[in-house]
């Protein structure tokens, strides 16, 4: 595998680097909000993977133009899927934040170490 092939897959590199960044934040950060930020990055990486794989080189947005039946357009299905996934991601994030708010109400802190010592 030569250098160009490696670089040619740059979208996958971006995907995996973001995935790792997100994962790292989830594991390494003690603050619950920061963990959720990491989780969000982690999910976004996957969105990018889906979006980038449907790109057809030279293709436009998949909107039917009159008088141009042979136009090249990107695959719309992954975009639709990812729209759903984004909704799921937002819901998860919202719920996660709501739980953090509740934790703060009940414990007065959102630092993991302090929470573990609390009970």
């Amino acid at each position: 595998m030569n250098l160009f092939e490696v670089l040619g897959h740059y979208n996958y590199w971006v995907f995996s680097i973001l995935l790792m960044v997100g994962m790292y934040a989830v594991i390494a950060r003690g603050n619950l909000i920061k963990k959720l930020v990491g989780l969000s990055i982690f999910q976004s990486a996957v969105f990018l993977m889906y979006i980038s794989m449907d790109k057809v080189e030279g293709g436009t947005a998949p909107i039917l133009q009159s008088g141009n039946p042979g136009q090249l357009y990107s695959n719309p299905l992954p975009q639709v899927l990812i729209l759903t996934a984004i909704v799921v991601g937002v819901a998860t994030l919202a719920l996660g934040l709501a739980i953090v708010v509740r934790i703060h109400e009940r414990y007065g802190t959102i630092e993991e170490q302090e929470l573990l010592n609390a009970d």
């Binding site: 996957v46 739980i99 934790i103 009970d119």
Partner: peptide, 22 residues
């Protein structure tokens, strides 16, 4: 209140699991 901590852990791990599946 300890359920909140348990659920946070579950949420993080569950989301990672589901994302892997995705």
């Amino acid at each position: 209140r300890r359920a909140l901590l348990a659920v946070f852990k579950y949420l993080v791990m569950g989301t990672i699991g589901a994302t892997f599946y995705l």
